[in-house]
Amino acid sequence: MSGALPRIWAIGLNTFREAVRNRVLYVLVMFAVALMAFSVVLGSLSMHEDERIVKDLGLAGISLFSIFISLFLGVNLLSKELDKKTVYAIIPKPLWRWEFLVGKYLGLALTMALLVSVMSAVLAAFVLFEGGTHGVVMLRAEALILLEVLLLVAVAMLFSSFSSPYLSAMFAGGLWVIGRNTAELAVFAERESTAESVSTLLSGVLEVVPDFHLFFVSGSNLGEGVVSIHGTYVDWGYVMSSAAYAGAYATACLAIAVFLFSRRDFT
């Protein structure tokens, strides 16, 4: 494993470089910042709710644009290597295919961590500008967003290991939409008016799809009441258990991707 680390690092560093040299990324980040700036304008039109609006819209912006970016980069991660045939020069180098895949994932994870951190810093600046505080609650919310994005990258990478970027984006995007609405789907499945076959099918789907709802909880009822970044919010214990869930799910996705990628012929 110690011999594998420099090789994984080499692939990861290259993936990071590829991502940060992609201009589309900067355009998307600029949009996120523009949304935060707009929230300041909206806040000034509200009745003493400036800070609340900046925080809500800011977090939503970081989440949404991070999702877009991770989908965009994640589905292209392997297909670009195959389309441009760059993989032909790398696989014959002294590394295992799993190292290549893990390196790609870690490189993208590093990119996303940097992006979420930058956007969070910008949001903190806007919150301070509004006279508020960007406290530990916001940090927890931003950490959850990063975990969601890291899980989505693994899901996108899994689809990218066997299908085209468009299909991968559709599959991963579709799973994200379902995963974000697991609470509503669970309620629907448990309703008495729902047909039993639909209820069984939905329950089965909910067991398998990644529960992205875990990571964007502000305004949700988690059993002990509604949690909100403006009031009672989840603690670090919740963040850690969500991290364990994201880690386990992402590892499973990567393991399947490695299995599929290892069997592949690069003709």
Binding site: N14, E18, K85, T86, A89
Partner: peptide, 12 residues
């Protein structure tokens, strides 16, 4: 190994 019609990471 030199592949046929090689193409490398053009951003590097």
């Amino acid at each position: 190994y030199l592949p046929e019609n090689p193409y490398f990471y053009d951003y590097l």
